[in-house]
Simulated scan of single mutants.
Amino acid sequence: MVAVLSACAAVPRISDDLTPAAYDFAQRLRWKDFNGAARYFDDADKKHAFVDVFAEMRDLQITDVRVETIDLDAGGQGATTRMTLEYFLLPSVSVKTFAFELDWAYAGLKPKAAETWFIASPFPPFP
């Protein structure tokens, strides 16, 4: 009986993979690894749109990206992250703040999937 209970305790929850994924996305965005961050989007059109937005902004300097909150939905198959990106566009040195939300979906154990959580919403328009 003890072995069965301890085995159940070791089973990871679906949400356990979301937090590292969200923080990895934020870090990749922070260090301008847009191709790496794009791998979290669930389809090719969203990936390309995301990379294209930032490819056009050569004067963009990102000073910080923070995950503010992660809200898991009741079923545990979706979540919303609220993030804050601080940046400036050269030649300006005034730091601006861009707060945005991203909807995430649990992908399960898809064959050939690198990630278990994907960003289901398009990246919001950059100000």
Rank of each mutant, 00 (worst) to 15 (best):
M1D: 01
A3M: 08
L5E: 11
S6H: 15
A7F: 06
A7E: 02
C8T: 04
C8F: 12
A9I: 08
A9N: 11
A9R: 12
A10V: 11
A10Y: 06
V11Q: 14
V11W: 02
P12E: 07
S15Q: 04
D16R: 14
T19C: 08
P20D: 06
P20R: 11
A22P: 00
A22V: 13
Y23L: 10
Y23H: 13
D24G: 09
D24F: 05
F25T: 02
F25V: 09
F25I: 11
A26G: 07
Q27V: 15
Q27S: 08
W31G: 04
K32C: 09
D33H: 06
F34G: 06
A38M: 01
A38Q: 05
R39T: 12
R39D: 12
Y40L: 03
Y40V: 02
Y40P: 03
Y40E: 00
F41L: 01
F41E: 04
D42T: 09
A44P: 03
A44N: 10
D45F: 04
K47W: 01
K47H: 05
K47F: 09
K47Q: 07
K47G: 08
H48M: 05
A49W: 02
F50M: 06
V51N: 03
V51F: 03
D52C: 00
D52G: 07
V53G: 00
V53N: 09
A55T: 14
M57N: 12
L60Y: 02
D64R: 14
V65C: 11
V65K: 04
R66Q: 04
V67S: 01
V67G: 14
T69W: 02
I70Y: 08
D71W: 00
L72Q: 12
D73N: 15
G75C: 00
G76N: 09
T80F: 00
T81Q: 03
T81M: 06
T81F: 02
R82N: 09
M83Y: 01
L90T: 02
S92Q: 15
K96I: 06
T97E: 11
T97N: 08
T97Q: 11
T97Y: 01
F98S: 06
A99R: 15
F100Q: 01
E101D: 13
E101K: 12
L102Y: 03
D103S: 15
D103K: 12
D103V: 15
D103N: 13
W104A: 06
A105Y: 12
A105H: 09
A105Q: 11
G108A: 07
G108P: 02
L109M: 12
L109V: 15
P111K: 07
P111V: 07
K112M: 13
A113C: 07
E115D: 13
E115I: 09
T116W: 05
T116G: 05
F118M: 10
F118E: 03
F118L: 15
I119C: 05
S121H: 09
S121R: 01
P122G: 13
F123D: 02
P124T: 13
P124R: 04
F126H: 06
F126N: 04
